[in-house]
Amino acid sequence: MKYIIQFGIILFISFIGELLNRAIPLPIPASIYGMLILFTALCTGMLKLSHVKESGKFLISIMPLMFIAPAVGLIDSWGIMQEFIVAIIVISVISTVAVIAATGHITQLIIRFKEKEGKR
């Protein structure tokens, strides 16, 4: 019963997210609204961790399976992609490494700076 309630709560929040996605004219998907709703509900104590924890963790653990079908779908857009496939690959690889480098180092630098300040 516990798992049914947990799964039900997560699906209900997904549904509310879907409603918001339809109602608000921004390209923000149901899943992000849902994540914000669940986070807020947990922070305000409207929901307890035990109301969602095990089912939620299960969903997160099987998450990689959910990317297989969309990725296999790459074969269907192969036609238009061929036009600038080299650009797509090079831009994706380089900008991904650049973003990881910039984000990671800046975050790390500020954290370390604050830690030093804290010690003083």
Binding site: F7, I10, L11, G34, I62, M66, A69
Partner: peptide, 24 residues
């Protein structure tokens, strides 16, 4: 293939919602 495999992808929205749990 996707007629069947889409049921796995279907779970992506609730799974993303569940990411709020580790965050909390």
């Amino acid at each position: 293939y996707n007629e069947s495999a889409k049921y796995l992808t279907y779970l992506l929205t609730p799974a993303t919602v569940a990411l709020a749990i580790p965050l909390y």
